[in-house]
């Protein structure tokens, strides 16, 4: 217990929590994207995938509660770190000069906040059906929840798609700094791997952006209907 307490109270420990929870969320984003890309295979695969997930409530709810906890820890640590950091520099310089910091690094808080708002909207949109209640009532010919139709109709709204694409852009930005920082914070970024890790961060962020944006773009272009 005292180890956990030291971990939680120390600056480096909070960074570990930030990194590990970030890694968990990153893994979720990849799995979620792979699941969603099944839309390009037609209605059957994605509807049966959704049916499969729903048929395992223990697994589904463990994953959901786990994700919620991970997200909550990520956000709590972020707020704690931001507050400590603000206190550490109470007086600013007269000239606001940016030294070395990348755009992604400087905007990590803003991109994180907008991604959080997007996640809430996204859940209301497709998980809770709060945006359009009939989304959850669509059924395919086998009586399964018609996820395919829900996605096509959801992304047919250009505003919803635009918000989605902008959010994916910000997620991509967040990850270019976040993924490489994860390795640095966990002490896994030794000198020999710096370039490789930074490249991995950029490539994975780019793949996530393109993969996720392919869906609303295909729907709007009428390629998936």
């Amino acid at each position: 217990m005292s180890k956990l307490k030291t971990l939680y109270q120390s600056s480096l420990g909070k960074k570990y929590i930030m990194a590990l929870t970030g890694l968990g969320l990153f893994a979720f984003v990849i799995i979620h994207m792979l699941g969603n890309l099944q839309i390009f295979l037609g209605p059957d695969p994605i509807n049966s995938y959704a049916e499969f997930l729903k048929s395992k409530p223990a697994l589904l709810w463990t994953a959901r509660i786990g994700l919620l906890a991970i997200a909550a820890l990520h956000i709590t640590s972020a707020i704690q770190l931001i507050m400590i950091n603000r206190r550490a520099r109470p007086v600013d310089y007269s000239t606001d000069k940016i030294v070395a910091a990348s755009f992604a690094a400087r905007t990590i808080i803003v991109s994180g906040l907008i991604i959080l708002m997007f996640v809430i909207y996204h859940l209301l949109h497709f998980t809770f059906g709060a945006v359009d209640p009939k989304f959850l009532r669509y059924e395919d010919y086998l009586g399964r929840h018609d996820v395919y139709r829900m996605m096509v109709e959801g992304f047919s709204n250009p505003f919803a798609s635009a918000f989605y694409i902008v959010s994916m852009g910000l997620l991509c930005l967040h990850l270019t700094h976040g993924v490489s920082s994860t390795f640095q914070s966990l002490g896994l970024k030794s000198r020999a791997y710096v370039a490789a890790i930074d490249r991995l961060a950029s490539i994975s962020a780019g793949v996530i952006f393109l993969g996720n944006c392919a869906i609303p773009v295909a729907v709007l272009a009428g390629l998936v209907k």
């Binding site: 600056s11 400590i84 950091n85 030294v99 070395a100 990348s102 690094a105 990590i108 914070s185």
Partner: peptide, 8 residues
Amino acid sequence: GNCTNIGS
């Protein structure tokens, strides 16, 4: 404060 890996 804490390191946010920006490299300044």
